[in-house]
Simulated assay, not measured.
Amino acid sequence: MTLIERKVPVNSSVAHAELIATFQRAQADAAHKLGLIKAAANKGPKAVQAATETATKAVKRRDSYAKKLNKLVGVSLKD
């Protein structure tokens, strides 16, 4: 849980840095899960479907953090 989510008072630069770090982790997670779809291709359609659903959730999470960053600091970090 981040400092912001715990409602700990922090200055804006710490909040921005924390949100950027969270976005970067979400971005790496989404890229990893998108790669898992290719690996699941050899395991059958159910595995591909499960990997696709997981990757979709990770991409939505990444996009949500990108939107928050854009709103907070006006910087677009989306691919």
Rank of each mutant, 00 (worst) to 15 (best):
T2S: 15
E5R: 13
R6Y: 00
K7G: 07
P9C: 02
P9M: 13
N11K: 00
S12H: 08
S12A: 13
E18L: 11
E18V: 10
L19C: 04
I20D: 07
F23H: 15
Q24K: 13
Q24A: 15
R25S: 15
R25Q: 13
A26Y: 07
A28W: 15
A28E: 15
D29S: 07
A30Y: 00
A30P: 06
A31L: 10
H32D: 09
K33V: 01
G35L: 07
L36P: 05
L36K: 14
K38E: 13
A40F: 00
N42S: 10
G44W: 00
K46R: 08
K46L: 15
A47W: 04
A47K: 08
V48I: 12
V48Q: 07
T52P: 03
T52R: 09
T52L: 02
E53V: 04
T54W: 00
A55Y: 01
K57Y: 02
A58R: 09
V59G: 10
V59S: 06
K60Y: 04
K60F: 01
D63F: 05
S64M: 08
Y65L: 12
A66G: 14
K67Q: 13
K67C: 01
K68H: 04
K68I: 06
K68Q: 12
L69Q: 00
K71C: 01
K71L: 11
L72V: 07
V73H: 00
V75A: 09
V75T: 06
D79T: 03
